[in-house]
Design a protein around this nucleic acid. Structure first.
Lengths: 140, 140
DNA sequence: TTGGGCACTTACCAAAAGGTGCATACTTGT
DNA sequence: ACAAGTATGCACCTTTTGGTAAGTGCCCAA
């Protein structure tokens, strides 16, 4: 099941594996993307996946160019979605760290192929983007 | 390489596999997500992947609740990104169909795990979302 | 005493993304 | 004659998202 993407041309009976079965989501992919989309979320997951528990400040420095407001916001969402765990050591000065939950780890695994795909095809993709940047920014 | 997400706690030397190497993208995952994010893009890819070449109207009916404007827009972007091919049969009344390119197919493959993850954990995710909907919409 | 780091919070704003509705030009079905 | 389907385009508006700048309370080091 869930190999919906692998059959190229012929409509297959596996269609139902990805059709609406729970409130709000049209398919599994939809659910997944809702949870990962956010400008910095993939990067956050990435750093947590390979760095283990990480303090806020360190995360902040790792994910370059992100503002406090947005970083915190995305961390909160990830936490609310059960992908990330926040640990507050109740110390002073404040000490807090973030780590992946089991769910978060499983998602991270699922992201590996996407990461690979992006790396392998980055040349083609970024080329297209570069060209687009030209005619995208022209007008009054 | 690119197994950055699989090492749980120990910082590994595989870091560099996902660090900035081309203009604009912080890592492969970033590149990938820029190309797939768009409210309906995953669904579009999904339908094309398992339905083969599909006419505009049919796509429109498959991807429920999407407006013409947005569907066309996303199709154009997918086309510009080299994932989808548009074929205009120059007939009258108009006949056009959309299909995946080789690149599109490869991406579709990479999406399978995400689709699976979403399907498997949809219960947990949608539950969290349902709860959030409650306290999200309360205020002046 | 001043300055910095810590982990946030808040108010305000700009840009991006998405949605609505109408228009096109031509054909087929009733 | 008229409605409906075909694949779009365009103007306009709302929602969502991200970004800036400032402030908080507490501690330590110069």
């Amino acid at each position: 099941m869930s190999d919906a993407f692998s059959s190229p041309a012929q409509p297959s009976p596996s269609v139902q594996s990805c059709t609406p079965n729970l409130p709000g989501f049209t398919c599994g992919l939809d659910a997944t993307l809702r949870v990962v989309s956010g400008k910095w979320k993939p990067l956050i997951l990435y750093f947590l996946a390979q760095g283990g528990p990480t303090r806020y400040g360190e995360l902040r420095r790792s994910v370059r160019d992100v503002s406090d407001k947005v970083l915190i916001q995305q961390l909160k969402e990830l936490e609310a979605d059960g992908l990330v765990k926040r640990t507050d050591y109740k110390e002073v000065p404040p000490r807090v760290d973030y780590s992946l939950t089991a769910l978060g780890h499983s998602l991270a695994q699922a992201l590996v192929p996407l990461c690979t795909w992006g790396t392998e095809h980055m040349a083609e993709v970024s080329q297209v983007y570069a060209e687009r940047a030209t005619w995208t920014r022209r007008g009054p």
